[in-house]
């Protein structure tokens, strides 16, 4: 009987502390937490951070930048209220939206060359993959996965024709796996894409634009309702800061490359080359969301299709 009593006490204690913790996760109005990921497509955010473009607009603001490994982690952090604004591709956003996450797109950030790279001269099209060949990409449901599915549907007749060959690897692991020959193809983005394409014999089996058929945003920014409703000033500041950074890179690529070379620990010349590479466009316009949601809905990756763009955009 005593044990029962002890157990009840412990459980009550756990419950109360959990409730308190949950109550405390919402942070204060004067601060904003922004989550991004690694890669050149996020370059404007690095500029905004280095040049304190948000602090410039809201001087007493506390801006927290966090870098996360993938969009799933950002999504989870936003659901639990630890992140206000997150950056990533459109498909993971639609998956979250479909599952009832209260978030919308705040801004576009970049378009970027993407592609399925191979070093194998035998592989010239998607048709050439044998059952043993492995294709690496960051995760199922990612933009890389959706683009591959679109290309597979177009060229092989079925969206999931290549799914059994997919393995998930982070971009850097994917690069070393491709170079060591343990995978045959890698669907990736800059700077990894450029690194791979510089290898002798490297060629692209399908590019993002070929797969999608029209220009599309690679990275966009999403904001939670909590942030949009109760931190209007900071929310606006973030969007304006992104816009300013995007303009800065487009107008002063050399200066931007100098700033970024510290962040990415890469040679300044190389960064400049990558920043100005064909297809690398920093732009707050959001492109391609209709096509993504139609495709994902028709292939069952999302259950509901957005009826209007208002459901997906804050402004």
């Amino acid at each position: 009987m005593n044990r029962m009593k002890d157990m009840t006490k412990v459980l009550l204690l756990i419950m109360v502390s959990l409730m308190l913790m949950i109550g405390c996760t919402r942070d204060t109005e004067g601060s904003v937490t922004i989550a991004d990921q690694y890669g050149l497509a996020y370059a404007p955010l690095q500029i905004a951070k280095l040049q304190q473009l948000i602090e410039k607009r809201v001087p007493d603001a506390q801006v927290n930048w966090v870098q996360m490994a993938n969009t799933a982690a950002i999504r989870e952090a936003m659901v639990s209220g630890r992140v206000d604004v997150g950056f990533g591709a459109i498909p993971p956003f639609l998956i979250g939206w479909d599952h009832g996450m209260d978030w919308k797109i705040a801004t576009g950030l970049s378009r970027s060359p993407l592609g399925l790279v191979t070093l194998d001269p035998e592989l010239q099209s998607l048709r050439d993959f044998s059952a043993e060949d492995r294709i690496a990409l960051p995760q199922p449901g990612s933009i890389q996965h959706m683009l591959l599915s679109m290309a597979a549907e177009e060229q092989l007749g079925s969206a999931d024709a290549l799914d059994t060959r997919i393995i998930t690897l982070s971009h850097p692991d994917g690069v070393s796996a491709l170079l060591s020959g343990s995978i045959q193809a890698h669907f990736t983005s800059p700077p990894y894409l450029f690194t791979e394409l510089e290898q002798p014999g490297a060629h692209m089996l399908v590019s993002g634009t070929e797969a999608f058929g029209e220009p599309f945003s690679f990275i966009v920014g999403y904001a939670s309702r909590a942030c949009y409703d109760s931190k209007q000033k900071l929310y606006r500041a973030c969007i304006e800061a992104v816009q300013e950074a995007v303009t800065f890179i487009e107008e002063h690529p050399g200066e931007a490359a100098q700033l970024l070379s510290q962040v990415y620990e890469m040679d300044q010349e190389l960064i400049l080359k990558y920043l100005t590479a064909e297809g690398m466009v920093y732009d707050t316009q959001v492109l391609g969301i209709r096509k993504f949601s139609e495709f994902m809905h028709s292939r069952g990756y999302i259950e509901e299709e957005p009826r209007s763009l208002e459901e997906l955009f804050w402004d």
């Binding site: 492995r134 199922p140 449901g141 059994t164 393995i167 998930t168 692991d173």
Partner: peptide
Amino acid sequence: FGVMGASGGLGWYIFQRRVFM
């Protein structure tokens, strides 16, 4: 490094549920 299709294990199952929320 999960593998889609037939040969995924329990870790892959959990990861897959996670990425599809």
